[in-house]
């Protein structure tokens, strides 16, 4: 449905905004490398089923997400490594990995490798933006492109919520994916303060600065 397609394209747009920013400004300043590595982990653990993905739509997106994320990490770790400031990227990701790992082991739908890794990926994605938001907090401001990147990334999962509501009412056979919905709501909530600042500042063409 339209919400999900818009969400997936918003997700794709966020990746291309980020790529554009890094290549245009030849710098990855203001971008959290830790968050990018977490997203790489999210894609790898979620798309283990890539070889037998049924729908071409999903297959293409999975390949796009994995390949573009790999390229972003290459750019940040190799090409533009000097513009990477690890002293600003100090969020303790072990807490996030522990959070996702614990929930994946406690509440998977089934105790199979695919399901446990999938649950891990869903919970990890819900908190993977924290290092990036934390870095934003520390620098107190961000380039417009970085703000657009975070906004598009936040919008992607926010749009999945109406998608789930739409499917609940329109598809009689649709079963509520409680893990994805719970994590999706948590993820969107984590962006809420950013969205507020983004909306009030950037929409007025101002520079993205925290109050």
């Amino acid at each position: 449905n339209i919400f999900r397609v818009l969400g997936d394209f918003s997700h794709l747009a966020s990746i291309f905004i980020l790529l554009h920013k890094i290549q245009q400004l030849k710098s990855c300043s203001g971008i959290s490398f830790k968050s990018q590595v977490l997203y790489m982990l999210v894609y790898i653990t979620r798309y283990l089923d890539l070889p037998w993905t049924s729908s071409p739509y999903n297959f293409i997106f999975k390949v796009l997400f994995i390949s573009s994320e790999l390229y972003i990490i290459y750019l940040m770790a190799r090409a533009y490594k000097p513009t990477n400031d690890p002293n600003l990227d100090t969020f303790h990701v072990e807490f996030l990995l522990g959070f996702a790992g614990l929930l994946a082991l406690l509440f998977p739908y089934k105790y199979t490798i695919l399901e446990v890794f999938w649950a891990f990926s869903i919970w990890l994605e819900s908190v993977a933006i924290l290092p990036q938001l934390f870095m934003l907090q520390r620098t107190g401001e961000a380039e417009a492109m970085t703000a657009h990147y975070i906004a598009a990334l936040g919008m992607y999962r926010a749009l999945y919520i109406p998608n789930w509501i739409y499917r609940y009412f329109s598809e009689p056979t649709h079963k509520v994916d409680t893990i994805a919905v719970t994590a999706g709501i948590l993820q969107t909530i984590l962006y809420s303060d950013f969205f507020w600042i983004y909306y009030t500042k950037v929409m007025r063409g101002e520079k993205f600065k925290l109050p």
Partner: peptide
Amino acid sequence: VADGGSKDEL
């Protein structure tokens, strides 16, 4: 609670 078997979403 449904089982999330159908991984039809990204």
